[in-house]
């Protein structure tokens, strides 16, 4: 159908792309695999660096998508994309014709069980950052047997920068998430000690470094440079962790009531089938490779009709994903309607 743009994924990037295209007079169709729009943000409680409730970002977007009368198809997993961008194939074989495609299919969370040495899924009080967000949302941050933790450890880079689990990239947002979550625990339980185990602190966004420093000075979060190598249970139901304090150069062992694994962003499982069907290239880590790193961030090639938005190409934060939704929408619009190619 004329002016139809298929948008794969109804997270923040996909919704923002749809809103922009609608405003430009196009007919965006959001194809969302899950039964609701919003993607991963649905599961998050508050957002760095401002402690903004995720709902405050999500609800206006959902409202706008509804208000604009944008066509949304839920439970619609996309299995293939035409190399010329003229349509997609849904699970079940249905084909949807379009004039261009925006790939906003997002990321998968790293499966923490793959880092067996941390015992996720084996030891009750080893949880992921996503689990902790659920606890924050339910306002119940307690150990498995219902105790208020006296000490929480937060481990950075779980499923990031780790060739042992084929995740060589940096997931970028985990560092600041770790700082945010550490501070939230301290706000919730001022008596609870919080230790962050990091390799590098990558405070890339505006205000991030400032809250990192605030976490140290005001919130008394202790940041120890070293990756935890092994977690085991203790007799009294705590966790023993081994690490090296690399700023000292000696091994260290410490106990905690709860260990939070900051799980990284992995390429979505659907990337491979989309890449094969659409003749799209994947980067080393398995995220989609955009045309270039400067002026072609959201394009797949020079004259193609397939565009990227959000974490389909690399780990990004919410603001960056939203911006890419707008950028990809404009480029999709230009590819259909003609005009200067910038």
């Amino acid at each position: 159908m004329e002016n139809t743009i298929a948008i794969i994924g109804g997270g923040v990037a996909g919704m923002q792309a749809a809103l922009t295209l609608k405003e430009l007079g196009m007919r965006p169709v959001i194809l969302e695999r899950e039964e609701r729009l919003g993607g991963k943000l649905n599961t998050w409680d508050r957002l760095f660096p401002t402690w903004t409730p995720a709902r405050e970002v999500l609800d206006p977007l959902l409202e706008a998508v509804r208000g604009a009368g944008i066509e949304v198809r839920l439970g619609a997993a996309v299995e293939g994309v035409s190399p010329d961008g003229r349509g997609v194939t849904l699970a079940g074989g249905e084909r949807l014709a379009a004039e261009a495609v925006v790939v906003a299919s997002g990321f998968d969370l790293f499966d923490a069980r793959l880092k067996e040495e941390y015992g996720y899924g084996i030891y009750d009080n080893v949880i992921t950052s996503a689990d902790l967000e659920t606890m924050f949302r339910e306002k119940r941050v307690l150990t498995a047997d219902g105790r208020v933790p006296r000490r929480v450890a937060i481990l950075h880079c779980v499923g990031s920068r780790d060739e042992k689990v084929k995740q060589n990239h940096c997931s970028r947002v985990c560092c600041i998430t770790g700082v945010k979550q550490a501070m939230e625990i301290r706000e919730l339980y001022p008596e609870c000690e919080v230790f962050n185990f990091y390799m590098d602190m990558r405070m890339f966004g505006p205000g991030y470094e400032e809250i990192y420093r605030q976490s140290q000075e005001e919130y008394k979060v202790v940041h120890i440079r070293g990756r935890i190598s092994e977690v085991s249970p203790t007799l009294d139901g705590r966790l023993q962790m081994k690490t090296e304090d690399t700023l000292i150069g000696r091994p260290m062992k410490m106990e905690a009531d709860m260990l939070v694994l900051l799980v990284g962003m992995c390429p979505a499982r659907s990337n491979r089938s989309l890449a094969v069907s659409g003749n799209l290239s994947l980067g080393d880590s398995g995220f989609f490779a955009a045309a270039d790193a400067f002026r072609g961030n959201t394009r797949c090639g020079e004259n193609g009709r397939i565009f990227f938005a959000g974490t389909a190409t690399a780990p990004k934060n919410v603001g960056e994903s939203l911006n890419e939704g707008t950028a990809a929408a404009w480029q999709a619009y230009r590819s259909v309607k003609g005009g200067a190619s910038w």
Partner: peptide, 14 residues
């Protein structure tokens, strides 16, 4: 014994 038992080098934080 000709040797003694090494003392732990790890920082026992607790």
């Amino acid at each position: 014994w000709g040797y003694t038992i090494n003392k732990p080098r790890a920082i026992a934080y607790d």
